[in-house]
């Protein structure tokens, strides 16, 4: 084979593989859009699921439930992630820091379903009840490594001179950290948080036996709650065409939220971190 032909084959393969790689995305998005749009209407966002055979209905409770569970996850995950990240960036250049960083790395590689088992044993069995709280706890743990890592990186990027200038003004160190350093790093940290929120919004596995599911509106954190992903799963594996349509519509709504957040965040920040 001449060098010229090899060169052509190389380029051809690279182009072809790139093309094949984007086909699934186009297929998934177009199916979700085309199948989902027909089942989306106002009722879908505002009504409860209806029994099989009854017309109409929606998954309003699941949409609200997802927001509640994700909100709870933030309450669990953000303080640990943000303060943990700040500590690592400022005081973590030692053995303790190494251990914590290593633990965060290991935590991020644990499959989410295993985190779900942990939440079941620790919260559901103890409270003797499935609850939004248990689901939020599981998702919160999943957030921690990403938020910690982003916060650490962003705080480290703040110039040292800013820190010293603050101290020179006579402010105590902790005020300098919260008022100056944290604020400067905030936009980067926020990006990490939003990407992490987008990711947990799409999580199903750890919710199956923590947040469980509900047929009704639920605003109580100590009660089982419906979430979009679990509802989509239940509808997807059902045999009823009416429920399949709801699964597609739910997917469209979910993708709209998740991809929307991802794209927006990406637009506003050049550096994108995946956890």
């Amino acid at each position: 084979m001449t060098r010229n032909i090899k060169e052509k084959i190389y380029l051809l393969i690279v182009f072809a593989f790139t093309l094949i790689a984007v086909i699934p995305l186009i297929s998934v998005i177009s199916y979700v859009f085309l199948q989902g749009i027909s089942a989306i209407n106002w009722d879908f966002f505002t009504r409860l699921p209806v029994p099989f055979g009854d017309p109409g209905g929606g998954m309003g409770n699941a949409i609200v439930g997802t927001f509640i569970v994700v909100g709870l996850a933030c309450v669990v995950g953000l303080p640990i992630g943000i303060f943990g990240g700040i500590w690592l960036a400022l005081y973590g250049n030692n053995k303790k820091g190494f251990v914590i960083r290593y633990a965060a790395d290991v935590l991020s590689s644990i499959p989410t379903i295993v985190i779900g088992i942990f939440a079941y044993v620790l919260i559901v069995l103890v409270m003797k009840r499935f609850s939004a709280l248990a689901g939020g706890f599981a998702l919160g743990i999943i957030m921690i490594p990403t938020v910690t890592r982003t916060t650490e990186e962003m705080v480290k990027m703040v110039p040292r001179t800013l820190f010293e200038a603050g101290l020179a003004l006579g402010l105590p160190e902790w005020k300098v950290i919260m008022r100056i350093i944290f604020r400067t790093a905030w936009s980067g940290i926020f990006t990490g948080i939003m990407l992490s929120v987008a990711r947990i919004t799409g999580e199903t596995a750890p919710l199956l036996f923590t947040a469980f599911n509900s047929m009704y509106w639920n605003f109580a954190v100590d009660q089982p709650t419906a979430t979009m992903t679990v509802q989509i799963y239940n509808y997807a594996i059902s045999p009823f065409a009416q429920w399949h349509a709801k699964a597609w519509a739910g997917s469209l709504t979910l993708m709209f939220i998740v991809l929307g957040v991802t794209l927006l965040v990406r637009k506003f920040s050049r550096r994108v971190h995946y956890g």
Binding site: C74, L78, F219, A220
Partner: peptide
Amino acid sequence: IKKALGVICAGLLTASMASAVVIN
């Protein structure tokens, strides 16, 4: 961030108080 957390917590508290008895 504190403000945001405060709002979330307050929201969740009011929400949990408004609950009716559900039999699971």
